[in-house]
Write a protein that binds this DNA or RNA. Structure first.
Length: 633
DNA sequence: AGGGTATGTCATCCT
DNA sequence: AGAGGATGACATACC
């Protein structure tokens, strides 16, 4: 885990995709696998540090108590008892990230600062906290009923203490997040201080065994390493890392199961946005899941079934109104993964386009330098899981951002770490392990990490015009519409009259994202047709002009021929006139019977048709006079 | 490798 | 004011 260098980084890699694994085994299998690994739970992130801290300090009881409290709280029962006066866990070197420095390698240590400090609690500072988040969340949904349900399951000997912890957690749930976090930190500090050892694992599993959902199906205490084994050394603690992380990560699946509808076309009420209400979801959604240590196809829905079942009783609207719009969108996209033929990469590519003006530009700030080009042969993961590219970890990096987690209006809330280049290799490594674990990938396959990832915008647009497989036969907008479950075809969207279009938009409950996409589809479709018409028209104009040119050239040739013929006729006429002149003058005689010199005389026709023989001098002067008269006129 | 073509898309103007 | 048409410009895939 530490080698992957991504306990926080995985928050960047959206863990939801894993739950989309169609091959996910039933929940009982997870627990069996957990048991096979000999570890009841897997702490993650900060709890790793705490656990390690406790183990390193030789305080097995502390770790024991921590695990017990965490597990107990995960059942909705109770966590560790809380006493007053505690300070933040970060104080005095209690920073869970700092505490990791001992057992964890330097690479991981370097990544710790990248995680926003404010998110330490959200990021699941400790396993108990994460489970408490779950508890708080579903308690927030229905406080009293869950509380009572939990109480019924608590054994009598633990009832008082559990009740107290429940009350504490209830208070936490009712408090503002910051206050709850502070309280959690206080509790965590008590874990560190070893003051909270009110529960043992035996107590925990006695409690859990009472769960009707058989949460601990097939698990006996003998299968579970006791604190002694935990304190055996770092290997044991590392083992705890693994499986606790798995367990906690399943909360994402829980919320998907609760919130996601196959055809979610909800009209969101922007006024219902509450940043506080989303915090638990943020925590849950942003959980880092270490792939290497994640059980294949694990599904803890059953593990959290009390919460699940309870929340299922709520309407989607009830839940949605409590969700931040961004979270909803994210979940909305998440639900796509539950659909057949869902291609997460399609979604990521479709929505991760910087040029989209429909709000689908999932990662406009995407650092191109941190993107890796996926091999053209298929960067697309067709395994049906979001963000889990099988053969190209680089593309998965992109996909993870683009698919579900990709739509991050506020990435900082969902990603634990920044997306700096320095973290990129670690990220790749993480994904590499992740994929290998989840989908039996080929980690040894040559990676294209050195290749620049094609910017998903233009290239993908164009590429979509030339589909490579059947799914790609859909246009980009068709794929988008399919991905967002838009209940209309692209042709309908583009072709329907504007009145019908507007009424359709108002008639259906569509998310802003869907409406925006529909409008974009319509605009693009219209413009596409307009562009085609424009080009056709332009081509027609060009062809018409070419025809005109040909016609004019032909006409020019004809006119040239006519001109030549006319010139020829004129010349013939001139010749005839000349001959006639000479014929006439050869016959003319003056008063003395001498021939008239045609050089000195000219023939002139009068208006009455008579012909006069005029000396050329007079003809020239007469022409001058007529010319002058013409000028005067 | 470079040029030409086809196509989608965007920006902008106009109706 | 908004929808849509028209079109230049750009990017990209393909030949």
């Amino acid at each position: 885990f530490s080698a992957s260098g991504g306990w926080g980084r995985a928050g960047h890699l959206h863990p939801k995709g894993r739950e989309l694994d169609p091959a996910a085994p039933p929940e009982g299998q997870l627990l069996r696998e957990v048991r096979a690994l000999g570890v009841p739970f897997v702490p993650r992130t900060s709890v790793d540090a705490w656990l390690v801290h406790s183990v390193a300090a030789g305080s097995a009881d502390e770790a024991h108590g921590l695990l017990g409290a965490a597990a107990a709280s995960s059942t909705g029962g109770a966590g560790a008892s809380v006493d007053g006066g505690s300070q933040a866990v970060q104080g005095g070197g209690g920073d869970p990230r700092a505490a990791r420095s001992g057992p964890l390698d330097a690479g991981e240590e370097e990544k710790a600062p990248a995680e926003p400090t404010a998110q330490v609690p959200d990021a699941g500072g400790c396993a108990s906290e994460e489970n408490e988040v779950l508890t708080e969340k579903h308690e927030a949904v229905d406080h009293s009923s869950q509380h009572e349900e939990n109480e019924e399951r608590v054994s009598a000997q633990k009832e008082n203490s559990l009740q107290q912890n429940n009350d504490d957690e209830n208070k936490i749930a009712e408090k503002p997040d910051c206050e709850a976090e502070k309280t959690t930190e206080c509790r965590n500090e008590r874990h560190l201080n070893g003051t909270d050892t009110s529960f043992s694992l035996e107590d925990l599993f006695q409690l859990l065994s009472s769960q009707p959902e058989n949460l601990l199906e097939g698990i006996s205490l003998g299968d579970i390493p006791l604190p002694g084994s935990i304190s055996d050394g770092m290997n044991s603690s590392a083992h705890y890392h693994v499986n606790f992380s798995q367990a906690i990560s399943q909360d994402v699946n829980l919320h998907e199961a609760i919130l996601l509808c196959p055809n979610n076309t909800f009209r969101r009420d922007p006024t219902a946005r509450t940043s506080q209400s989303q915090e638990p979801f943020l925590q849950l959604n942003s959980h880092t899941t270490n792939p290497e240590q994640t059980l294949p196809g694990t599904n803890l829905t059953g593990f959290l079934s009390p919460v699940d079942n309870h929340m299922r009783n709520l309407t989607s609207q009830d839940l949605l109104y409590d969700l931040d719009i961004n979270i909803f969108d994210e979940i909305n996209l998440m639900s796509l993964a539950t659909e057949d033929n869902f291609d997460p990469i399609d979604v990521s590519q479709l929505f991760d386009e910087p040029d989209s003006d429909s709000g689908l530009s999932l990662d406009s700030s995407h650092n191109s330098t941190s993107v890796i080009k996926s091999n053209s042969s298929h960067s697309v993961c067709d395994d049906g899981a979001i963000g889990y590219c099988t053969d190209h970890e680089s593309s998965s990096h992109h996909d993870l951002e683009g698919a579900v987690g990709g739509y991050h209006p506020e990435p900082s809330k969902l990603c634990h770490l920044d997306q700096s280049d320095s973290d990129f290799h670690g990220d790749l490594t993480f994904q590499h392990v992740f994929h290998n674990h989840t989908y039996h990938l080929q980690p040894s396959a040559p990676e294209s990490t050195s290749e620049p990832f094609p910017w998903p915008g233009k290239s993908q647009k164009i590429r979509s015009r030339y589909p490579e497989d059947t799914d790609r036969n859909l246009s980009r907008d068709e794929q988008r519409a399919k991905a967002l479950h838009i209940p209309f075809s692209v042709d309908e969207i583009v072709g329907m009259p504007v009145d019908s279009f507007n009424s359709m938009l108002s008639r259906y409950y569509l998310t802003d994202l869907q409406v925006s996409l529909i409008r974009d589809i319509r605009r693009r479709g219209k413009n596409k047709v307009a562009a085609q018409n424009c080009r056709k028209r332009k081509l027609d104009i060009i062809l018409n002009l070419e025809d005109d040119v040909c016609n004019l050239q032909a006409k020019k040739e004809t006119l040239k021929r006519e001109q030549a013929q006319c010139n020829k006729a004129i010349n013939i006429m001139k010749q005839k006139l000349h001959d006639l002149y000479h014929d006439i003058f050869s016959r003319l005689r003056d008063d003395q019977g001498r021939p008239v010199n045609p050089n000195h005389y000219a023939l002139q026709c009068t208006h009455d048709g008579s012909i006069l023989i005029v000396p050329k001098e007079l003809v020239a002067s007469g022409h001058k006079k007529e010319t002058q008269k013409g000028k005067r006129k």
